[in-house]
């Protein structure tokens, strides 16, 4: 299996952020993850990327048991992520930010600088290449998150609310970029509150609530299920429109 979570649990003190989570993702899939605030979505990403280690359960990636590996080792295996609150290297230029991933991801067959230019062109940051990352607008910061994740040439990319805070037009640009990334063969797992953006990309939707998977399947069927409607009722008018 490409990526498999087996009864993964994690709690901070008495509060469980992941409660016996099991699911698997096939190579090339595009999976959306939704859920109310505090449902454990970002924690789930932290568990998959290795920023957090599970207290119980097992995570496998490409047949390797990665349960106890940190984020660096998992990044070498091909897991990349973006952060909900962007974490740019503010003292480096945009080009250098992307160069970091290209140089340290371990692939020796590509010239890092060339790969960087590809990624910057793809993410629409090429004209800002020599600007300091600390001086970017929100959209460009989000693009940089994406560019940096792509710099490691990942097999799976975890997008954490990458469209949050963007205007409708900016959001559309980002969606088409994510579609391109997915079309080029990269597996995409995407947490997003902007459901219509999410549904225009993913073929599968997982719903989390209080650290549990409460629904998993075809996006439109999942959105129609009574359980999901109950969770989202009054929170996400967007979801109502879509069904």
């Amino acid at each position: 299996m490409f990526l498999e979570l087996n009864s993964v649990s994690k709690s901070f003190g008495a509060i469980p952020v992941a409660d016996n989570i099991s699911f698997s993702v096939g190579a090339g899939e595009a999976v959306g993850i939704i859920g109310p605030n505090g449902a454990g979505k970002t924690s789930l990403f932290n568990l998959i990327s290795g920023d957090l280690l599970p207290s119980a359960g097992r995570i496998e990636f490409l047949g390797n048991d990665v349960t106890i590996l940190g984020s660096r080792r998992r990044s070498h295996l091909g897991i990349a992520r973006t952060y909900q609150v962007p974490l740019p290297f503010t003292g480096l230029s945009v080009f250098e930010n992307v160069l970091v991933g290209a140089m340290f991801s371990g692939g020796g067959d590509v010239v890092p600088e060339d790969h960087c230019l590809d990624v910057l062109a793809k993410t629409g940051l090429i004209h800002r290449a020599d600007a300091l990352a600390g001086s970017l607008s929100l959209l460009d910061r989000k693009r940089l998150e994406l560019a940096r994740a792509l710099s490691t040439r990942p097999r799976v990319i975890l997008l954490d609310e990458i469209a949050g805070g963007l205007t409708e037009a900016e959001c559309l640009q980002l969606v088409s970029l994510i579609r391109t990334i997915h079309a080029s063969g990269t597996t995409v797992i995407w947490i997003e509150h902007i459901v219509h953006a999410l549904l225009s990309v993913v073929q599968r939707l997982i719903v989390l609530d209080r650290g549990r998977v409460v629904a998993d399947g075809d996006p439109h069927e999942v959105m129609r299920s009574p359980q999901v409607r109950e969770i989202y009722l009054g929170m996400e008018p967007d979801a109502e429109d879509l069904v």
Partner: peptide, 19 residues
Amino acid sequence: IALIAIRDSERAAEALGID
């Protein structure tokens, strides 16, 4: 470059493969 990256965000630097 890795040093500056670590200084600015150790977490992101690790996630990009830096020890």
